[in-house]
């Protein structure tokens, strides 16, 4: 692994932010409003086709269920009659042979709250290119577009090669990360080896309301993050993320994801929000 120590810190931050896909502006409104018929036609033409000639294709279907429940007296109850949303998508991810480019195409197969007939506000297709996500409705009209990653600083999108690393390669990188954290000796970060395969990283930070804590569990054997939990200043669990995998050619591919968050409603009741995604029919192939 080569290291570049002389990169200015601002650029390092820029690199990180680009890698994390955090452009300053989240929504490119002008894209929506200034669409011309020609632009739309162009986007319609290529929105579902990859420009990658040779590489790997990872495909799967996702079934996502979102449900909100009241947590009153320890019992759960559905918050509203329309609180359970479900959507099924077909996803194809293309990664080129050099591992530099990655494109993702999703198509909506089913939505629990689709209105009868043509539903102009429903996103039927999504494309991700150069870190830019675009959503289209069934008629091919662009509904939204995020800013492309690195649009401002000229950096390319996230390195695609990471997506298809094997367990061993991932594990090696995580070990390097841990070593660097150890060297940094930051008082904000604690690391604990819970077992030969499991490391827990506790990060202390602060938001406007006071100190916060987040706990990340990493699996060294497979080289993947498994669970992240965030606690507020009162020590209450604010949200958590659980990610489970399937092994495809020794590559850990995301197979299950569960996001749990909490909020307080207008009556002061605590509400639990769950978003559960199953990844099925996972296939990895060269083309």
């Amino acid at each position: 692994m080569k290291t570049i120590n002389r990169i200015p810190r601002t650029l390092q931050t820029a690199l990180l932010l680009a890698a994390l896909g955090l452009p300053p502006m989240a929504c490119n409104e002008s894209t929506m409003e200034q669409q011309t018929a020609t632009e739309l036609t162009d986007q319609q033409t290529d929105r579902a086709q990859t420009s990658i000639k040779h590489g790997s294709r990872l495909s799967y279907t996702t079934t996502k269920v979102m449900v909100s429940s009241n947590l009153n007296n320890g019992a759960k109850s559905q918050t509203a009659s329309d609180a359970l949303f479900k959507e099924v998508q077909q996803v194809d991810v293309f990664v080129d042979n050099e591992g530099k480019r990655c494109e993702e195409f999703s198509r909506l197969l089913e939505h629990s709250h689709k209105k009868p007939g043509y539903d102009p506000t429903l996103v039927a297709e999504r494309t991700v290119r150069n870190g830019q996500t675009m959503g289209f409705n069934a008629a091919g009209r662009l509904l939204y577009a995020t800013e492309p990653s690195g649009a401002k600083d000229g950096l390319s999108s996230s390195p695609a090669e990471e997506l298809l690393l094997t367990c061993a390669e991932r594990s090696e990188r995580i070990q390097l990360l841990l070593e660097q954290v150890r060297n940094a000796a930051s008082s904000d970060i604690d690391m604990e080896q819970l077992s030969p395969n499991v490391v827990r990283i506790t990060v202390r930070d602060a938001d406007a309301n006071g100190p916060t804590t987040s706990v990340t569990y990493l699996n060294l054997k497979y080289g993947v993050p498994v669970k992240v939990e965030a606690y507020n200043s009162q020590g209450l669990l604010q949200n958590s993320l659980l990610q489970l995998y399937k092994l495809v050619d020794d590559v850990p591919v995301l197979a299950y994801e569960e996001t749990v968050g909490y909020s307080t409603n207008i009556d002061g009741e605590r509400v639990e929000h769950k978003a559960i995604t199953h990844f099925d029919n996972i296939k990895l192939e060269k083309f």
Binding site: T3, L16, G21, V203
Partner: peptide, 29 residues
Amino acid sequence: GWAAALHFLLLAGDPLATVNAVKLLSKRS
């Protein structure tokens, strides 16, 4: 996103950048 951050982090090889990166990654949930 996690993997990409890791990639750049290792390229940078800077302890402070590492700490910032881990802080950012801890915000994944």
